[in-house]
Design a protein around this nucleic acid. Structure first.
Length: 754
DNA sequence: AGTCAGCGAGTTTTT
DNA sequence: CTCGCTGACT
């Protein structure tokens, strides 16, 4: 009947699963099976305790984790898909969409990412006539975020700032920023949580409704919750008290983002009578790897005492190498991977982890050069790329027009001769008449002194109006935006290679829109604002597909919650990891956080762990000479396999037998001697890197008027007309099932049908 | 009024 | 090295 087999659980796991009533803290070490415990606990509640799936709330940090959890629960128990599994942020959005009018916002609010926030703050600083050198939007944004995380409002900040000039100015920026957000009907990430808590606090009926609905609440990664998140959970759980949190204080790595480790450390104090279960058996890693992890983390103070152990045997020793520079490090790591693949390993057995995104470049270059397929996670978030943000800004403006940040972004993209002066006038006019920027544009002819810009503004206004009338799905709408705005001309300003990347990104964006439309039956409705919301709340990690046969490159932060057979932890250098910032801050807690990060990195490895660093590293065009990281020193020497007696100096092809291997493993660190190495046979690496895409050169098309062509989405059709545009062809196709469509050849991916 | 070129400054991790 | 801004030019 049930697929949940509770006998598979160990003693502690059972304890956690069967303890359903009252507050419960599950301290789950890395790889101790917490996802399984949460999924089983949910199944148990539904099957054995007759709890309705509808009454269960599970909160995770990423959409990916939520999806995995949902899949797990669905596979275990009937009606598992009725359990509310979501991230903090999307949970809050869902609540706010329904009730935010109680706080004076419209329910079609847009969501600001960090970029939008900075743009707006910069604008506010200007408006307040403050020196941008003194007040940097980056720092102010971080400051406002941390206040919001601690539930401190602008009014509170102003009170606290009394008598302090600078603090007063900063509080004013906060206040003005918040005012603009409200005018633009926009919420930043922190608002999503903060406003939800305020909503619940101020509206007894809403609170009552959700308390009643979520009788059982579970929160994953509890060590990374901040003050608002804590408040949100505590508020919802207050009525029934069934709050189950899972976390590991040793894996708390988001203090910089406001996470408060005390949430987990003080759980028992806050929720009196809480039961605590410790999961210390690790099912992921070998003892060698766990020993190294334990050795490092034991240097931290103020942690809950626990000791991970494993039954998986000793396994290979942890390897360590110091290379001359970052390029060499990258080359040898990639070469090692190639070697292992030749011996039967798969590319997706490997992850290359590093502290900062800047380190990814060397690895990427070597992957390309050495024909190793890879997947880069992180860096600049896909949706933050300029061309994508432009298109999103168009969509936002089309959808509501209240978001001035979006409108201002695209008002002159492509160039329409609407410059700073005109923008300033528009802003003044909008401000004086209580209009949005878009509304001001629509009334441009009433603005005195608008001068030559008037025709351009009217043209812009027409374009937006036209797009608002457009009848079609989101993917088609985006194509239409590109077409009617002549977005091509924006791309053409860049050099060939960059254009290429940008086109790929736009293609990917189109296919995401397509997927969104295709998958809509699972969601409420495929509206534009739903699409924009989804787009705002995705994290890089969310679309990592572990089944893809590629080496994964990402930061250690990104790797939390994941596991790989072989992990390369690179850049183990003082100043890089731990970071320069954390060493210089003077706050020992900063170093402790770095140490926890190191612990997270180490514990991602299942079978093989290779640590490495470089003597010299080029960063922003400057060469730095770094000492070996203190974290390496914290691992007893006998636990590390270094190369030769010179140890840390040598590369892995030094002497025979001095390689990274030990314990009779079939993996070894020995490489071919340099001369053999020159032209290693090309492996079976698929010749695809990064994203898949088809290139459609604009010189010459494979089809002509009258030809039958196939479109990815619209199927078969007949080419009616081809117009030679500036750089791309504009093609008119009469599709059998969809009628006539006009499209840019570069984006349409049309193929001649036979 | 808008655009372009040259100069200076800044760079941890991200829902 | 790349982004963003200031100041000169069209």
């Amino acid at each position: 009947m049930s697929d949940a087999n509770y006998a598979l659980l160990n003693k502690e796991q059972k304890e956690a699963v069967f303890h359903t009533e009252g507050p419960l803290l599950i301290l789950a070490g890395a790889g101790a099976g917490k996802t399984r415990v949460l999924a089983y606990r949910t199944a148990y509640l539904i099957e054995e305790k007759n709890v309705s799936p509808w009454n269960i709330l599970m909160i995770t940090f990423t959409n990916k984790a939520a999806q995995e959890m949902r899949d797990r629960v669905v596979s275990l128990v009937d009606y598992g898909d009725s359990v509310w599994v979501a991230t903090f942020h999307s949970t809050c959005v869902r609540i706010l969409r329904r009730y935010i009018d109680r706080l004076g916002y419209d329910s079609d609010f847009t969501i600001y990412d960090t970029d939008d926030v900075r743009t707006l703050i910069k604008q506010v600083i200007q408006e307040l006539d403050l020196d941008p050198k003194m007040y940097k939007e980056r720092a102010i944004a971080a400051w406002i975020s941390s206040l919001k995380n601690d539930m401190i409002t602008a009014e509170d900040a102003k009170k606290d700032a009394m008598g302090n000039f600078r603090a007063m100015k900063e509080a004013q920026i906060y206040e003005a920023y918040q005012k603009h957000c409200r005018q633009n009907n926009a919420l930043d990430f922190d608002d999503l949580l903060l406003l939800t808590v305020q909503l619940l606090q101020r509206n007894e009926d809403v609170l009552e409704y959700y308390q009643q609905r979520f009788k059982y609440i579970m929160i994953d990664e509890y060590q990374d919750t901040n003050r608002v998140q804590f408040e949100f959970a505590a508020l919802l759980a207050k009525k029934f008290g069934n709050l189950c949190v899972v976390g590991d204080d040793d894996q708390s790595i988001y203090r910089f983002r406001g996470a408060d480790i005390r949430n987990i450390l003080d759980f028992e104090k806050t929720f009196t009578g809480a039961k605590v279960v410790k999961l210390e058996q690790n099912y992921r890693s070998t003892t060698s790897i766990l020993d190294a992890a334990n050795a490092v983390i034991s240097h931290n103070r103020g942690r809950k005492n626990k000791h991970l152990w494993s039954e998986l045997g000793k396994g290979d020793s942890v390897g360590f190498r110091q290379y001359e520079n970052g390029y060499q490090e990258a080359e040898e790591v990639i070469e090692k991977i190639r070697q292992e693949v030749r011996r039967g390993a798969s590319y997706n057995d490997f992850a290359i982890l590093y502290r900062t995104n800047a380190q990814s470049r060397a690895f990427e270059e070597k992957c390309v050069a050495m024909n190793v397929p890879y997947r880069l996670v992180g860096g600049v978030n896909f949706y933050q790329r300029a061309e994508i943000k432009d298109l999103i800004a168009y969509l936002k403006t089309i959808a509501s027009g209240k978001d001035d940040v979006a409108t201002a972004r695209i008002i002159n993209v492509p160039r329409r001769g609407i410059g700073k002066t005109t923008l300033d006038k528009l802003r003044m006019f909008a401000d004086a008449n209580d209009l949005s920027l878009m509304e001001a544009i629509e009334h441009a002819k009433n603005i005195p002194g608008i001068g030559r810009a008037l025709p351009s503004l009217q043209a812009f206004s027409m374009i937006i109006e036209e797009l608002r009338q457009f009848d079609g799905d989101i993917e088609e709408l985006i194509r239409e935006v590109i077409y009617v705005t002549d977005y091509e001309s924006v791309l053409e300003e860049f050099e060939e290679e960059k254009q290429q990347t940008k086109r790929e990104n736009i293609d990917e964006f189109l296919s995401k829109a397509h997927d969104f439309m295709a998958g809509w039956d699972e969601m409420e409705e495929p509206t534009l604002s739903n699409f924009l919301e989804e787009v705002a709340l995705v994290a890089d990690i969310d679309d990592l597909d572990e089944d893809e046969n590629r080496v994964v490159l990402m930061t250690i932060h990104g790797a939390k919650g994941l596991e790989f057979p072989t992990v390369f932890l690179c850049g183990m250098e003082e100043g890089l990891f731990p970071s320069y910032m954390s060493i210089n801050s003077g706050d020992p807690m900063d170093i402790e956080e770095e140490r926890r990060l190191c612990y997270v990195g180490i514990t991602r490895a299942k079978r093989h762990l290779y640590l490495s660093c470089a003597r010299a590293r080029t960063l922003h065009g400057e060469v730095n000479y770094n000492r070996v990281s203190r974290f390496i020193d914290e691992i007893p020497e006998n636990m590390l396999e270094t190369a030769g007696k010179g140890g840390k100096r040598t590369f892995f092809d030094s002497e025979r037998g001095s390689g990274f291997s030990s314990g009779g493993s079939d993996f070894s660190w020995n490489l071919p001697k340099p001369q053999e190495k020159k032209k290693a046979p090309v492996t079976s690496a698929p010749a695809s890197f990064g994203k898949d895409f088809t290139v459609q050169k604009s010189d010459g098309l494979s089809y002509s008027v009258g030809d039958r062509v196939v479109h990815q989405r619209f199927g078969l059709g007949t080419v009616k007309e081809i117009v030679d545009g500036k750089k791309d062809y504009e093609v008119l196709v009469d599709f059998d099932d969809f009628g006539e469509k006009r499209m840019m050849a570069g984006f349409a991916k049309l193929e001649k049908a036979n």
